[in-house]
Design a protein around this nucleic acid. Structure first.
Lengths: 211, 211
DNA sequence: CGGAGTTTTGATCCTCGTCAATCCGCGTGG
DNA sequence: CCACGCGGATTGACGAGGATCAAAACTCCG
């Protein structure tokens, strides 16, 4: 929301800081608040009764959280790093729309973008192999600007367990697949959270299931 | 869009009829149009280069299609039955929002609802077993009104192959799982497209992974 | 250093995909 | 009226990919 048109929104927002690892919104709770993440990263996930977990999205600076038009949150949100966000009361949303019509436009655009991402993720989860999932994930982590160069560095803000829960795999499979990619000289792993892509073409083909 | 407030929208819409089986919107095509489905059912899907397919959603009367805020459609839409829909020009959307502010509100609500559904589907595709997926699917096909009664009838507007592509399974696994449910007296199948639920409690437990 | 948490690696198991054959419902035409 | 054929659904045999269980190695920090 780094946007002049919406700067006045800050006047009605409550600012919060969430420390790394803390949950600030839980699945099933009454959806009272609405957030805009200002700094840091968070993960959004759903659980099954027996503990299985699916991460339905990661959010970064500028993203809205709590868009769901239900009375209750449909997922849990947890800070991956220390997070700064501003909180709105959902009951005031309608009034906010009247006062800041552009907000509604922005929310619709954001929701539309999220839907496209969600659909791509359904394809990944429903039809792609472990290797294809990892390749897709690594490519999504790179900015389009660096898309031409080889040796792009992907910085993961989350541990392997979160990668697994996002891709619908286990941490063992994620680890094994990354090892295979290393052995094929497609990627290099300096430390756990920094992966550099050394053969983007191969990775792109893997992501599409072409090899 | 069976709504008095939006009835005037019909004046700027182009009405179309799409015969069963026809594609009226293709992934990757420039997103010129925007649809509201009026009668019938359609499926939305994405493909991989080698032909693997993931259905990302089904649409029924009243649903909007083409919400994606990209320049290109992110999925293909195909009519499951004969379909009637009204078409809008996306270039005129902004003007439409000015003229019918309630339309933007409706679209945001629709997008939010779709996001919730998409997140539930990610959990299903990423973490649920074949049995859990089928149980969830069958329960979603029943209206909440009949949720108390046993012996609810689910009418599927699509063949097994579409069920499989929606649940991230193969037709063989769908068939086998339905057979198992039959043998356990949880469902009964009169003809292929009519499934009646005879033990809703068991089905509910199966859907949540509790048994 | 040391120790906890994370990641990697290994061995084994199981669910579901693949390939193939058969069955069923249904419309067509002889 | 029935044989035929076609598409979709079911069933069976088998195999592969990824999950599970277990142990070792590595990171990161104090």
């Amino acid at each position: 929301m780094i946007d002049a048109d919406l700067s006045q929104l800050a006047t009605v927002a409550h600012w919060c800081r969430i420390p790394k690892g803390h949950i600030f919104l839980a699945e099933g709770d009454p959806a009272q608040n609405f957030f805009n993440l200002n700094r840091g990263n968070a993960k959004l996930f759903k659980n099954l009764p027996d503990g299985r977990r699916q991460i339905v999205g990661f959010v970064a600076a500028g993203d809205f959280i709590g868009l769901a038009a239900n009375n209750r949150y449909s997922f849990t949100a947890e800070a991956l790093t220390d997070v700064r966000l501003c909180r709105f009361d959902r009951a005031e949303l309608r009034a906010l729309f009247m006062e800041f019509p552009i907000l509604e436009r922005r929310l619709l655009e954001a929701a539309s973008r999220e839907l496209v991402v969600a659909q791509a993720q359904m394809l990944l989860l429903g039809r792609k192999s472990a290797m294809e999932r990892l390749a897709t994930f690594l490519l999504n982590g790179t900015t389009s600007q660096g898309s031409r160069r080889n040796h792009t560095v992907v910085t993961l803000p989350m541990p392997r367990s979160d990668v697994a829960d996002y891709l619908g795999l286990t941490i063992e499979t994620v680890s094994r697949t990354l090892t295979t990619l290393k052995q094929r000289h497609v990627i290099e792993i300096s430390c756990d959270y920094h992966i550099s892509i050394t053969d983007r073409l191969t990775l792109t083909n893997l992501a599409a299931g072409l090899s």
